[in-house]
Amino acid sequence: NQASVVANQLIPISTALTLVMMRSEVVTPVGIPAEDIPRLVSMTVNRAVPLGTTLMPDMVKGYA
């Protein structure tokens, strides 16, 4: 089972991601792979991401 990136807090729309905002967790459905966390830092989300939500590729500008 692959770990995915999960929001560690509410991430408001257009917020630049930082390490403290994300954690890795094995979830269903599978989202962005946890090993991509370093790549996600400073990318922005294009929607509000509630606490505990799995980050999907279409939620992060420039990721997909």
Rank of each mutant, 00 (worst) to 15 (best):
N1T: 15
N1W: 11
N1I: 15
N1D: 15
Q2I: 13
Q2T: 15
Q2R: 06
A3E: 12
A3R: 07
A3I: 07
A3P: 13
S4Y: 03
S4W: 03
S4N: 02
V5Q: 01
V5E: 01
V6N: 02
A7Q: 01
A7T: 10
N8T: 12
N8S: 14
N8V: 10
Q9Y: 10
Q9N: 06
Q9S: 08
Q9D: 08
L10T: 10
L10I: 12
I11R: 00
I11Q: 01
I11N: 01
P12N: 09
P12S: 06
P12V: 04
P12R: 07
P12D: 09
I13H: 12
I13W: 15
I13N: 13
I13S: 12
S14F: 12
S14T: 10
S14M: 15
S14Y: 15
T15S: 13
T15N: 04
T15Y: 08
T15G: 04
A16M: 12
A16K: 13
A16P: 15
A16H: 11
A16L: 09
L17A: 00
L17E: 00
L17Q: 00
L17G: 00
T18Y: 03
T18I: 05
L19T: 07
L19R: 12
L19D: 04
L19F: 15
V20P: 08
V20A: 14
V20I: 13
V20E: 10
V20Y: 15
M21C: 04
M21V: 03
M21K: 01
M21E: 00
M21P: 00
M21D: 04
M22H: 00
M22I: 08
M22Y: 03
M22A: 00
M22D: 00
M22P: 00
M22E: 00
R23V: 05
R23L: 04
R23Q: 04
R23G: 07
R23S: 06
S24P: 12
S24M: 10
E25P: 00
E25W: 06
V26T: 10
V26Q: 12
V27S: 05
V27P: 00
V27A: 06
V27R: 09
T28F: 10
T28G: 05
T28C: 15
T28P: 01
T28E: 15
T28W: 08
P29G: 03
V30N: 12
G31M: 02
G31A: 02
G31E: 02
G31T: 00
G31C: 03
G31R: 02
G31H: 02
G31N: 01
P33M: 07
P33H: 08
P33Q: 07
P33N: 08
A34L: 03
A34K: 06
A34T: 12
A34M: 09
A34W: 06
E35P: 08
E35H: 12
E35V: 14
E35C: 09
E35F: 09
E35T: 13
D36G: 07
I37W: 03
I37Y: 02
I37E: 00
I37M: 14
I37N: 00
P38A: 12
P38D: 08
P38L: 10
R39G: 08
R39I: 09
R39K: 14
R39L: 10
R39A: 08
R39Y: 10
R39T: 11
R39E: 07
R39H: 08
L40G: 00
L40A: 00
V41S: 02
V41G: 00
S42L: 08
S42H: 13
M43L: 15
M43F: 15
M43D: 01
M43W: 07
M43S: 06
T44I: 12
T44F: 13
T44A: 09
T44Y: 14
T44Q: 10
V45Q: 01
V45L: 11
V45E: 01
V45T: 13
N46C: 09
N46V: 11
N46I: 08
N46E: 08
N46L: 14
N46Y: 11
R47N: 07
R47C: 06
R47W: 08
R47E: 09
A48Q: 14
A48G: 08
A48I: 12
A48V: 15
V49L: 10
P50K: 13
P50Q: 11
P50T: 09
L51H: 14
L51Y: 14
L51P: 10
L51D: 13
G52V: 03
G52C: 04
G52L: 04
G52H: 13
G52A: 06
T53F: 13
T53R: 10
T53M: 12
T53S: 11
T54F: 03
T54P: 07
T54C: 05
L55G: 02
L55C: 03
L55W: 02
L55K: 01
M56A: 06
P57R: 09
P57K: 11
P57Q: 07
D58P: 12
D58G: 11
D58S: 11
D58V: 08
D58F: 11
M59Q: 05
M59L: 05
M59N: 06
M59F: 15
M59S: 06
V60L: 08
V60W: 01
V60S: 01
V60K: 01
V60E: 02
V60I: 13
K61N: 14
K61E: 13
K61P: 14
K61C: 15
K61D: 12
K61W: 11
G62P: 05
G62D: 12
G62C: 11
G62S: 11
G62R: 06
G62K: 06
Y63F: 14
Y63W: 14
Y63P: 04
Y63N: 04
Y63Q: 04
Y63S: 04
A64V: 11
